[in-house]
Amino acid sequence: MSAVTNNPTASDAMKRRTRWFMLGAFVVAGIAFAVISGSGINENLVYYWTPTDLHAAGNKAYGATIRLGGMVAPGSIRKQAGSGLEFDVRDSAGVVHVKSSGVPPQMFRESIGVVVEGTMVNGGYFKSSRLMVSHNNEYKAPEKGHAVDQKQLKKMIESTEDL
């Protein structure tokens, strides 16, 4: 205590000890970081499966609750009875047909990223009750002169007007 009351710095003995603590902390931190960044934990921890992953999983995808992520295939959006809708989720190599009962967010449209939560069911489609839209890291102002791309807007409205 006297080290603290007389002078707000620690004794030399304490400093020697705390430097070892610091070294220990850095070793622990370094190992933790190496394990998380360098080991196979990255392959085992997945937030969502791509359509390709889902096909590769085969029967394991049936019945298990999984997230499927990919792009909404252009021209694939169809309205179902009620609030449900159908669309294809695709990546570079695979396509999965999705029937979703979740209310789509406003951003939902063709060619946008989505993550759906659900499972593969008999009939070979993905049944989902939770639909999330993921956008990319582009933030753009509307182009000057033609504030909105009319052709793009028309396509977008057509793709979602039945929803």
Binding site: F21, A25, A29, F33, S37, L45, Y47, G69, M132, S134
Partner: peptide
């Protein structure tokens, strides 16, 4: 202080999380 040094490991993981894993959050 020791706990801070160890917990700091999460900071680069937060930063790189969107590159290392599939994520809902954009890059």
């Amino acid at each position: 202080s020791v706990a801070t040094i160890i917990a700091y490991v999460d900071v680069p993981i937060v930063y790189f999380s969107v590159r290392w894993w599939n994520s809902l959050h954009q890059l």
